[in-house]
Design a protein around this nucleic acid. Structure first.
Lengths: 230, 230
DNA sequence: TTAAAAAGTTGAGCTAAATCAGTTTAAAAT
DNA sequence: ATTTTAAACTGATTTAGCTCAACTTTTTAA
């Protein structure tokens, strides 16, 4: 089970859509109570501390979910298309966003009115069960990331995020990363300079091939090992 | 909302019991499908990687929930009585415990058969809604702890855990801690020596009064400040 | 009630990784 | 096309916090 900790500095990979469980009528109910919004790269999708009047479904794009805190934020997860953002805000006694989210690339989201969502949970147990699944998968992912950021050293963390990007986000060994080195540093909770140094090490050792923002995983096994050992 | 990050190196403080939502019949159904077990201090309540055949309700005691990984574990949370352990294991496609739990003190738990629990979720939407609440509260707590361990320095982390113990676990400013310095180190993700040094600093500066395992919070405000600043 | 083991404590030295201060390159803006 | 700004990179320096190696106190076991 230790492989759980490899490559978990990552995202929730939506295997289940809770919306599948809705009746036709409920689907229409959702349609009536949602709006579609486009966010440009860098824009804030939701703001920590503001009223959570809606659940956010990321239809297309890539976003980061993070806790705001000067001098440095903590990225909780990166979220590709197909994910729900803001679910933990729906618990009773709380009506504010617990975190912020921002678009890494131009993104398309659907905002679903929160009481609509809550009502669906209360009246459709199967839907609720799916939501619980989504929440739990998410929790597991965050645990992996928690472990990664607290117990792995720099090389392990960078290896981890590279594997994550290749496996879970872009789903290919060669990808063009829409993040700056700075954003990569925020994501791995390290300094920009350290990110650059570690990437250079990997490049020099032939583990990756890197030209600017183009990355190619050359030695998957070795990166996995580095990620595991920390 | 920044006070969110103070004193969150902590536990889920169960405000809602999901079981309140059960019908009489469902309560009986649970009664038939649960067993009561006693765990001695130090004993493993559930083991990461083993089959999760049940949900664990901590009726009495104090436990840690942690990810196992040599050379050092990561404590996800400490769990006082009234908490459910093992909820994230109930998602589809997974039937193993994602983490271990161990008793800090002699503890009494109830094991509820997992399919019983799943059935309740599917057939009682209000129960499911409560479970979602519990999961979300838990998630928020973990986020706080995640932030604490990744972004705060040693003094901030120790201040945080002391406030947490006083406020959330023992609910008094003077308490006898059933943890060794070593366990405190594991909890704050620092070395035992560092824990001792920081505690000594706090003691010397009059922020706490400490004799062996007896702790007394003397300057709550200053500790809060240290916890906030990091 | 004494021995053994575990927990707690202290200081010295080391190291991983941050910060700082700069240079180079690339991307926007004029 | 040229200036401006931002991002990428490099080396030197600093430092927070760990490890190590002692020693003391407390707890447990014989």
């Amino acid at each position: 089970m230790n492989s759980n900790y490899t490559n978990t500095c990552t995202v929730y990979d939506s295997r289940f859509s809770c919306f599948e469980e809705l009746t036709e009528e409920q689907v229409k109910f959702v349609e009536r109570n949602k709006v579609k919004v486009l966010f440009k790269k860098g824009e804030t999708i939701c703001k920590q501390g503001s009223f959570a009047s809606h659940i956010i479904y990321l239809r297309e794009g890539l976003a980061k979910v993070y806790l705001e805190h000067s001098p440095r934020n903590l990225v909780l997860k990166i979220s590709p298309s197909g994910n729900l953002i803001g679910l933990p805000s729906i618990y009773d006694g709380n009506n504010i966003f617990l975190y912020s989210a921002a678009a890494y690339v131009d993104s398309e989201v659907e905002l679903i009115e929160i009481n609509t969502f809550k009502q669906l949970i209360r009246e459709n147990a199967k839907f609720a069960y799916r939501v619980i699944n989504v929440l739990n998968e998410n929790t597991v992912q965050i645990y992996g990331r928690f472990f990664c950021l607290t117990n792995k050293q720099l090389h392990g963390r960078v290896a981890d995020i590279l594997l994550c990007l290749a496996n879970r986000i872009f789903k290919t060994n060669e990808f063009n990363l829409p993040l700056t080195r700075n954003e990569l540093a925020e994501l791995t909770n390290m300094s920009t300079e350290s990110v650059i140094r570690v990437l250079k090490d990997f490049n020099d050792d032939g583990l990756i091939e890197m030209t600017g923002k183009t990355f190619k995983i050359k030695n998957y096994d070795m990166l996995s090992k580095i990620s595991e050992v920390g």
